Amino acid sequence: MNRVESELPFTRLRIKRRVKARSRSSHAQSMHRLRWKENMWGYLFLFPSILIFGIFQFYPMLESVYLSLHMTSPTGKIVEFVGLSNFKELFAGDGFVESLKGTGLFTLYTVPAVVVMALLLAALTNRNTRGMKLLQLIFSMPVALSVGTSSVMWGMLFHPTTGMFNYFLSLLSIDPVMWLTDPKWALLSISVMTIWMNSGFAYIVLLSGMKGIPADLYECAKLDGAGSFTRFFRITLPLLSPTVFFVGIISIIGAFQSFGQIHILTKGGPMQSTDVMVYSIYQEAFTNFRFGTGSAQALVLFAIILVLTLLQFRLLERKVHYQ
Rank of each mutant, 00 (worst) to 15 (best):
K77N: 13
S68A: 05
Q57Y: 14
P74M: 05
V97P: 00
M61N: 09
G76R: 05
F81R: 01
A118Q: 00
H70N: 09
I50N: 04
P48I: 07
V116Q: 00
P48Q: 04
P48H: 07
A92M: 06
G42F: 14
G42L: 15
L84R: 08
F81Q: 01
E63I: 06
G76N: 02
K88W: 12
G76D: 02
E98H: 14
V97A: 13
G83Q: 10
A122L: 02
Y109F: 14
P60W: 03
F106R: 03
L120H: 02
S85G: 11
F45M: 02
L108Y: 06
A123K: 03
L120V: 15
L46R: 07
F81A: 01
Y109N: 08
K77H: 13
S64M: 03
V115H: 04
T110G: 07
T72R: 02
G54K: 10
K77R: 13
G104F: 11
Y66P: 00
T75E: 02
I78K: 06
V111R: 03
L69M: 05
V82G: 01
L120Y: 08
P48N: 11
P48E: 04
L69W: 05
G95T: 15
E98K: 14
G102F: 12
I50C: 07
A122I: 01
N86S: 10
A92T: 08
F47G: 12
K77E: 10
N86A: 13
F53S: 13
G54D: 03
T103D: 05
V79Q: 00
H70G: 02
I52Q: 09
V79N: 00
Y43N: 07
T107H: 04
L90H: 06
T103I: 10
E63A: 12
E80H: 07
T75M: 09
V115F: 11
Y59W: 14
F58I: 13
N86M: 13
S99P: 10
A113G: 08
E80C: 05
L105F: 15
E63H: 09
G95C: 07
E80R: 15
L67N: 01
F58E: 05
Y66E: 05
Y66I: 00
G102Q: 13
L121T: 05
L84D: 04
G95H: 10
S68T: 02
F53M: 13
G54M: 06
G102D: 11
I52K: 12
F45L: 06
V82F: 02
F87K: 08
S49I: 15
L84K: 01
A92S: 12
G54Q: 00
L105P: 05
L51A: 14
Y66Q: 04
S68L: 01
V114H: 08
T72F: 01
E63D: 12
M71A: 14
T103L: 10
L108A: 12
L67V: 09
V97I: 14
F45E: 04
S99N: 09
S64T: 03
V111T: 15
A113L: 14
S85L: 11
T103Y: 07
P112C: 02
M71H: 13
L108F: 11
Y66R: 04
T75W: 06
I50R: 00
S68I: 01
S73D: 04
F106H: 09
G83L: 05
W41I: 14
L105R: 11
A113S: 12
E98V: 15
L100N: 11
F91P: 07
L62K: 08
V116A: 11
F87W: 12
V65S: 02
E89K: 09
S64E: 06
